[in-house]
Design a protein around this nucleic acid. Structure first.
Length: 426
RNA sequence: GGAGAGGUGACCGAGUGGUUGAAGGUGCACGCCUGGAAAGCGUGUGUGGGGGCAACUCUACCGAGGGUUCGAAUCCCUCCCUCUCCGCCA
């Protein structure tokens, strides 16, 4: 949610930001109308309420004094009706205003390159060298089944397209990666581990920005106000929804392993093969709640934490800043980490690290009381994958594959997997 | 799922229709007292939304949402959550 002061005082800036994002700038004008209406109704209602309160007080006094108050009661009746009528208008306006506010995306910060899509993303750095093969590297959708560790057909039998069964060392590798990632974030980066619910109520999804606009991307439980989480960002960020924290409690850093569930509406035909785009995938998530003046540096820190995992696994990657047109709804700035996938001869997203500023904090009501006292202020929230586990598994298979079709296990992972090589069943 | 009890401010806790935004206490802040501290005394101490936009002022909020009433924390309805017992289950 954007600050109302900002929308009132600098609507042009908001309009420009929406245009840069490819969003509907006219929403700002709609907002302005509704806001003006709302304030008009509000002033009027409150004046009438004041009248009524005064009158009721007088009635109370009269009655206690044993006087007849029927005349005064009749007189207030009129005010009461006016209030009811106006309150109805106010409620309608309020609700429309809220809907508009919930539909407005966050504003990109100045550092974000302006552009319509990923073509405008800015390359920040490239780390590690793509491996050279003296054979044609396979894609994981060939490697996985031939190693007997990924079973796409049986996954589809169980649940349909975009579901996969991991078998044997595949399952074990996925689990090892989760453990490996969590250990680093806990022991070296100082996060608090959380095992949250994998289902959340709609309030939480509104808090982080998935609802009301992106309902079609979510799986909803029939007959309940419950959704499968699309990312642990939702439960982790909402942990402190509607709370006022002490400033001394900041920054808060949470990490969680969770499965993530996405309906992938509108992505028919994209990444239909392999593990890249699934309805269910595993992810280790990083979330920060920080003082508003610290969020820019926190984004660098958080992104660094995600990068650490790739560095330890010795996987080549690059870091890009998403353009205005490519950024997510709640973010004011986003880095994508893209890992090199030899089987596809391309860098593919493996982590997305965003600073959401106070956008989610406003929606979710996450505030802190300044140490020096005074009004509560909104925290800034950040989130990032550290990392997407399935895609990390893909990267290992494709980058560490050998001419004979086996896969060497990265050094750092061997204590977890207790083998140094994944070989096709004899 | 069934039965019962309960949800009040940072916390404890009073309050069943009329200056109650809410007694009292604790905590916290400031002041007095003290050589210093404790104790004691005094004052202050919620959040949101409006208007002036400074002092100030109005309004809403006692789990949430409706209703009754001139007036509701207090009465009625629905829902949510917590606790206890039963059932069921991992």
């Amino acid at each position: 949610m954007l600050a109302r002061e900002l929308l009132r005082q600098d609507p042009d800036r908001v309009r420009q930001a929406l245009t840069d994002r490819g969003a509907e700038a006219a929403l700002v004008d709609r907002w302005g109308d509704l806001d003006a209406d709302r304030r008009r109704f509000l002033v009027e209602v409150e004046q009438l309420q004041h009248q009524r309160n005064e009158a009721s007080r007088a009635i109370g006094q009269a009655k206690r004094a044993g006087e007849d108050a029927s005349e005064a009661i009749a007189a207030v009746g009129q005010v009461k009706q006016q209030i009811e009528a106006l309150e109805a208008q106010l409620a309608t306006t309020d609700e429309e205003l809220r809907q508009v506010e919930l539909a407005l995306p966050n504003l990109p910060v100045a550092e974000v390159p302006v552009g319509a899509d990923e073509a405008a993303n800015r390359l920040e750095r490239q780390v590690g060298e793509p491996p050279r093969f003296d054979f044609t590297p396979q894609a994981h959708w060939d490697l996985g089944p031939s190693l007997g560790i990924l079973d796409f057909e049986r996954g589809a039998k169980l649940a349909g397209a975009r579901f996969t069964a991991y078998l044997g060392l595949g399952a074990r590798l996925e689990r090892a990666l989760i453990q490996f990632m969590l250990d680093i974030h806990l022991d070296e980066h100082g996060y608090t581990e959380v095992l949250p619910p994998f289902l959340v109520a709609s309030d939480s999804l509104v808090g982080t920005g998935q609802l009301p606009k992106f309902a079609e991307d979510l799986f909803r439980i029939a007959d309940h106000d419950l959704y499968l989480i699309p990312t642990a960002e939702v439960p982790l960020t909402n942990l402190h929804r509607e709370e006022i924290l002490e400033e001394s409690a900041l920054p808060l850093r949470y990490t969680a392993y969770t499965p993530c569930f996405r309906a992938e509406a509108g992505s028919h035909g994209r990444d239909v093969r392999g593990l890249i785009r699934q309805h269910q995938f595993n992810k280790v998530e990083l979330v920060h709640l920080v003082h508003p003046e610290r969020s820019a540096e926190a984004l660098e820190t958080l992104t660094g934490h995600a990068e650490t995992i790739l560095q330890r696994l010795e996987l080549p990657y690059r870091l890009v800043t998403l353009s205005t047109g490519d950024m997510g709804f709640s973010a004011c700035r986003t880095y994508d980490i893209e890992v090199w996938l030899p089987g596809q001869d391309a860098y593919r997203e493996i982590s997305s690290c965003s600073n959401c500023g106070d956008f989610q904090a406003r929606r979710a009501g996450i505030r802190f009381r300044p140490a020096e006292g005074g009004k509560p202020r909104f925290v800034h929230t950040l989130n990032g994958s550290g990392l997407a586990v399935g895609r990390t598994l893909i990267a290992i298979l494709e980058n560490y594959q050998q001419a004979d079709g086996s896969v060497v296990v990265p050094e750092a992972l061997r204590p977890y997997l207790r083998t140094d090589r994944i070989v096709a069943p004899g």
